[in-house]
Amino acid sequence: MNFLHYTIRSGPDTIIRVNIDRRANIRLMDELNYHKYKMKKRYSFVGGLYDPPRAELRPLRQGEWHIVVDLEGLDGDVHAFVDLLRM
């Protein structure tokens, strides 16, 4: 399983902007769901399939969050970087 992974500490007062160079799946997950994702078990997330140039996501609560960018079901490579915008 190939994916890009970013860990941040944030809350609902922050917009997480994920910049991508091609169509990709972007998922925002807490620690438990990130672990389930890696184990290929059923998990919950905020996000979905996005087109460039970016996706903007907001954490549901304060804490540590995992951002995963992957091409599950798509061919090629993706490049991404993450910005945090404080409200």
Rank of each mutant, 00 (worst) to 15 (best):
R23G: 10
V78M: 04
E64R: 10
G76L: 10
H5S: 01
M29S: 03
S44R: 11
T14H: 09
E31K: 14
D75S: 10
R42P: 00
P59R: 08
K38T: 15
G48T: 13
D70K: 03
K38V: 14
S10F: 05
E64D: 14
G47N: 08
H66T: 01
L4F: 05
D70C: 11
L74T: 12
D70F: 11
K36V: 01
K41E: 15
L28F: 09
L71K: 05
I67C: 08
R27K: 03
R17G: 04
E72H: 15
R22N: 13
H35C: 00
K41Q: 14
E56V: 14
F45I: 00
E31T: 11
W65M: 00
V69E: 12
R22L: 14
E56G: 04
R17C: 08
P59C: 03
R17L: 12
D70V: 04
H66S: 13
Y50L: 07
N33A: 02
L85K: 07
D51I: 01
M87H: 09
L71W: 02
I26E: 07
E56T: 12
R54P: 00
L28C: 12
D30H: 06
W65N: 07
I20W: 00
M87I: 13
Y6P: 03
I8M: 06
V82Q: 09
K36T: 04
D51Y: 10
I16L: 10
G47Y: 03
L28H: 03
T7G: 08
L60R: 11
K41M: 10
P53E: 08
L85V: 13
K40N: 07
A80Y: 01
D13M: 05
D83A: 10
D51A: 09
Q62W: 13
R22D: 04
V68Y: 04
K40V: 12
R27D: 04
I67V: 15
K36W: 10
A24W: 13
Q62K: 14
I15G: 00
V68T: 12
D51S: 12
R9S: 13
Y50F: 15
Y50N: 05
Y6A: 06
Y34V: 00
R54M: 09
I67H: 14
S44E: 11
R17H: 05
E31Y: 05
G11V: 02
Q62I: 11
G73E: 07
P59A: 09
E72G: 13
D51E: 14
G76Y: 02
L85R: 14
T7V: 11
P12C: 02
V69Q: 14
I67G: 14
G63C: 07
A55S: 11
E31C: 02
G48V: 08
P59L: 01
F81E: 13
